[in-house]
Simulated assay, not measured.
Amino acid sequence: MRNALFLALLLSTAAAATPSLAGEIVLKPTTVQDMKAVFGQVESRDTAPARVRTGGTLVSRTVEEGSVVKAGDVIAVVADEKLALQLQAVDARLKALDAQLDNARTELERGQSLVSRGAVTQSRLDQLKTSVDVLQNQIEAAKADRAVIEQQSTEGQVLAPKDGRVLTVPAAPGSVVLPGETVARIAAGGYFLRLALPERHAARIKAGDPVSVGERGLGPAATDSAPRRTGRIVKVYPELEGGRVLADVEVEGLGDFFVGERVPVWIPVAERTALTVPANAVMTRNGIDYVRVVGDGGPLDVPVILGRATSDAGDKRIEVLSGLRAGDRVVTP
């Protein structure tokens, strides 16, 4: 009785460990791409500097590194004390010109009343009219000067040139800045990956080639088994730098990355022929991988050495380095 129970248990265990036979495939060499693992560096499409339009003292700054800004936001204010003094001088000049104009108009009215009685000549009346016109034009010029100074005062506001994230803020409040000096650098226009590959691969890569992009960071999430996203090469630079060719890769969803962060990327650099089997055709027992093939005497489990996993039309396949050859009939569960 015990022997019968033991035999039944052994048969059930073997049946559970042995996959059911559903079909077979004939191994044929297929073309696979060799992928080179590199690191891509996150870059922003545009780096827009927020510059000072007028010199002075940086009195306030509303952003820090990492702040998100919109185009037109006031991110800093620059004040020039000389502008306030110039406004006071223009206002004083306007008051003096207004007083002179009132006096000139009074003289003109008096001259108009006396010219009819012959007490004032016509030439003197023309001079009085000219004096009034000159003073009015001087007042308009002074008002224009005041408008220029007011515009310079408003240009002390440093505006964000584009939507984006602030990378650096080199100027601190209280420091003296000159016209054209950068107050903040803003990463704008989205993000992409920049690759630097050895020059021997320069002839193999081109715009439009697909690449695999790993997860961000250098922790467990960035391992080879982690899910990958698909990107494509959009630009290959014609100039080599330090024996390396530069290429830009577009990937969706790079908006949350840090500029300058490195991300693992796998890029195709060569093609070769190999034998691949479906991933579910591989059995592992005692640390050894087996693939069941159909021989002359029936199914036979052949030990194999496996390579990297590939995909063929959405089906996961594994490269077989040794143990099988072209023409073998592989049993697929």
Rank of each mutant, 00 (worst) to 15 (best):
N3K: 08
L7W: 13
A8I: 09
T13R: 14
T13G: 14
L21I: 13
V26E: 11
T30I: 09
D34V: 04
F39Q: 13
S44K: 02
P49A: 03
A50V: 02
G56Y: 04
R61Y: 02
T62M: 11
V63E: 03
V68W: 11
K70G: 02
V74K: 05
A76Y: 00
A84G: 10
A84K: 08
D91Q: 05
D98Q: 10
Q100W: 09
A104K: 07
R105H: 08
T106E: 08
L108W: 10
S113Y: 08
L114Y: 12
A119F: 09
V120A: 02
R124Y: 10
D126W: 10
L128H: 12
L128E: 11
D133W: 07
N137M: 12
I139W: 15
G156H: 13
P161M: 05
T182Q: 04
G190F: 05
L195A: 01
L197G: 00
L197M: 00
P198H: 01
P198V: 00
H201Y: 08
H201N: 06
I205K: 01
K206L: 04
V213I: 04
V213N: 00
E215F: 13
G217E: 01
L218H: 10
V236I: 08
D248H: 06
E252C: 12
F257H: 12
F257A: 11
G260Y: 00
R262K: 14
V265G: 09
P268F: 01
R272T: 15
V277C: 02
A279Q: 15
A281S: 02
D289H: 12
V294T: 10
P299K: 01
V304H: 00
G314S: 01
G314C: 03
